[in-house]
């Protein structure tokens, strides 16, 4: 079993949990380390975090692992409620399971996840998009939350500044944010975004 997670604390918890279920476990904090560990130990299943920081994502790593071992089971464990929240991602390998950490309620659900990946590693599965926003709306949301001005968002997405302003307004309506002058839409949108990517729960459902 290979556990790939860039947060030391979360990785420690996951490794302990996996070990307590009786699996031999190797761990890695970066994509580079993960590829080396996989090469050395040949795991059957990899639990991979989606956001590994700068460079390859968990999806990239999953594809690299699958290219060297076509039967490896892949579970993407993430705090991102929807993979599109991370931006430009490749397709997940066939059979990869996508699960938010918030939905891993106990050891039983982790055991079931590992078992599913190990026994049916390449059974086609769909990764559903759980956030009811379009790709472009999520892109606007991500860029605003990254601290970009409207002008920068416009430049990035080939839109006019007024189109971005309208998109932010529509986004705030769709997110159900308070439509009062005192509310700063950009701040609230960023807050909703961080809510989605921090624990899988939206502060403004």
């Amino acid at each position: 079993m290979l556990v790939v997670e860039d947060s030391d604390f979360t990785r420690m918890l996951l490794v302990n949990a996996v070990t307590s279920l009786g699996h031999a476990c190797v761990e890695a904090s970066t994509a580079n380390d993960a590829v080396i560990r996989a090469r050395e130990s040949g795991p059957d299943v990899a639990l991979v975090d989606l956001d590994l920081g700068v460079g390859p994502t968990g999806a990239d790593l999953a594809r690299a692992l699958r290219s060297t071992n076509p039967r490896i089971g892949i579970a993407i464990l993430t705090s991102y409620e929807d993979p599109r929240l991370l931006g430009n991602l490749p397709e997940f390998p066939v059979g990869a399971l996508y699960m938010t950490k918030g939905h891993l309620a106990d050891l039983g659900s982790l055991a079931a996840l590992i078992d599913e990946c190990a026994t049916r590693p390449v059974t086609p599965r769909s990764v559903s998009t759980r956030v009811a926003l379009s790709d472009s709306q999520l892109e606007v949301m991500r860029l605003v939350s990254a601290g970009n001005s409207n002008a920068e968002v416009a430049k990035e997405l080939w839109l006019s500044v007024s189109a971005v302003e309208k998109a932010i307004h529509r986004l705030s309506e769709q997110l159900g944010l308070p439509q009062v002058p005192a509310a700063n839409k950009r701040v609230l949108i960023a807050q909703a975004y961080y809510g989605w990517i921090s624990d899988g729960r939206n502060a403004y459902p």
Binding site: S145, G147, S149, A190, Q191, Y194, D199, A203
Partner: peptide
């Protein structure tokens, strides 16, 4: 500063609320 500080503060606000 816009990116780093604002993102940090916003993320802190979200985490604090939780």
């Amino acid at each position: 500063l816009h990116g780093l500080v604002q993102s940090t503060v916003l993320a802190s606000a979200a985490a604090l609320e939780k």
